[in-house]
Amino acid sequence: MIEIFLRSVFIDNMVFAYFLGMCSYLAVSKNVKTAFGLGLAVCFVLTVTVPVNYLIDKYLLREGALTWLSDRFAATDLSFLSLIIFIAVIAGIVQLLEMVFERYLPALNMALGIFLPLIAVNCAILGGSLFMQERNFPTVVHSLAYAIGSGIGWLLAITAFAAIRERLKYAKIPPKLQGNGIAYIITGLLGMGFMCFLGM
């Protein structure tokens, strides 16, 4: 389980290995504080949605998943609906979290609130659920470890990137390369750095 966790933080890093969540990664990394906020939000939503989707997948969608209802459903395979259900669950949970935060945890809402709506369409979140489905984790706890790991990996990536970007203001970059161009290249270089963890 620790292996799953470490793997998803360093080796299967959402940003560097699978390019997931790049849109918000590039858009919200102008300064470290907001980047960290978004990272936390992604981490949080992943931790909630992946286990929920795991249970849905296991007890509703997978071939033979409905046998706990009745043996007649043994051959039913609803996995073609998993995409639509995962995305609906994610959108629903994000909405729910937003409401709960607003009502009971105003401090957290101040910190994460503006990022939550962004997250429903963040590929890292849906990607988390899809990879979870593909990797066939044995128990819900494994999927939880995976979710937390991926979240932390994403948080690490965006914070590191934002810190570099802040520094970049003082660097001399060819004018045509400024902005997105250099941002992509830096992400690539960071990714190479993370490749060193491969032998772990």
């Binding site: 560097f16 992509y184 690539g188 490749m195």
Partner: peptide
């Protein structure tokens, strides 16, 4: 063929 080069 490794991921980082796509970004670069």
């Amino acid at each position: 063929i490794l991921p980082p080069m796509a970004l670069i």
